[in-house]
C-alpha cells in the first residue's frame, strides 16, 4: 500500500473533486493493472456510501421550548413593541383615541373664561349671561364657563357648558334675577368632562352625517 502512496493521494483528490484531467488519466491507467489499488479505491468509495447510510435522528418535540425557556430574560419594552406589531389596528385605534382625548382635553382646559356665541343684545354680568326681556335670539346659543338667565325668547337650541341655566329666582347683587323667558329649542347642559366628551362626539357625529 505504501508503495502506491501517490496513487492513493490521487484517489483522495478524486473524491474531493480536485483531480485534474491528466491526473485522472494517470490514475485510470494505474488502476487498470494494479489490483491492490483497485481494491483500495473500491473500499474508499464503499466507506463513503456506508457513512452516508448512517442513522438519522430528530430533535425531541419540545426542543425549541426548552431552548426558549433557558434564554436570558429579554428587555422589558420588547414585549409591548411586539404586541403592537401583532395588533396594528388596535394600536392605530388606541393612538387615534389618545390624540382625540388629548385634543378635547386641551379644548376643555383652554380657558376658564366666559365664552358666549355671537349674538346681539345679550348682557354679560360677571359669569352670567342674560337674555334681557323683550329680546328675541333667533339662533342657537352657546354659553361656556358661565350661567344663563333667560328673560327674553330664544328661537333655537341652548347649550350651556360648565355652567347652568338659572331658572329659579336667585339673589345676585341688587336685583332679583330668574329665567322666566321662553326657549323654543333643546336645552343642553354640560358640566362634566364625560358629558363634554359625549357632547363633542355627538356634535361630530351630527356634523358628519348631517344632510345639510
Amino acid at each position: 500500500m505504501i508503495a502506491h502512496k501517490e496513487e492513493i493521494e490521487l484517489m483522495h483528490k478524486y473524491l474531493d473533486g480536485d483531480l485534474r484531467e491528466e491526473e485522472e488519466e494517470e490514475l485510470r491507467k494505474h488502476l487498470e493493472f494494479c489490483e491492490e489499488c483497485q481494491n483500495h479505491f473500491h473500499e474508499l468509495k464503499r466507506t463513503i456510501t456506508l457513512i452516508q447510510s448512517s442513522e438519522s435522528v430528530r430533535a425531541p418535540s419540545d426542543f425549541t421550548n426548552h431552548v426558549m425557556s433557558r434564554l436570558p430574560k429579554e428587555k422589558n419594552g420588547m414585549k409591548y413593541k411586539r404586541w403592537f406589531k401583532r395588533h396594528p389596528i388596535v394600536t392605530a385605534a388606541a393612538i387615534f383615541f389618545i390624540f382625540m382625548l388629548s385634543g378635547m382635553f386641551t379644548q376643555w382646559n383652554q380657558d376658564g373664561e366666559l365664552v358666549v356665541s355671537k349674538q346681539e343684545n345679550l348682557i354679560v354680568q360677571g359669569d352670567t349671561v342674560i337674555v334681557p326681556e323683550g329680546v328675541v335670539v333667533d339662533d342657537n346659543l352657546v354659553v361656556k364657563n358661565g350661567n344663563l338667565i333667560v328673560k327674553g325668547t330664544i328661537d333655537g337650541d341652548v347649550t350651556i357648558i360648565n355652567g347652568k341655566l338659572i331658572e329659579e329666582e336667585a339673589v345676585s347683587g341688587e336685583s332679583l334675577m330668574a329665567s322666566v323667558g321662553e326657549i323654543n329649542g333643546e336645552i343642553n347642559s354640560v358640566d362634566r368632562m364625560f358629558e363634554w366628551l359625549w357632547y363633542q362626539a355627538k356634535t361630530l357625529f351630527e356634523k358628519v352625517f348631517s344632510l345639510e
Binding site: V57, A59, P60, F63, T64, V67, L71, E74, G77, M78
Partner: peptide, 24 residues
C-alpha cells in the same frame, strides 16, 4: 434588536440538524 420571540423560529428551523450533528 431584542425580540426574543423571533429566535424561536430560528431554533425551529435548525434544531434537527444541530441536534443530529451533536448526536453524531
Amino acid at each position: 434588536k431584542g425580540d426574543q420571540a423571533a429566535y424561536s423560529e430560528i431554533v425551529d428551523f435548525y434544531q434537527h440538524r444541530i441536534f443530529q450533528h451533536c448526536y453524531r
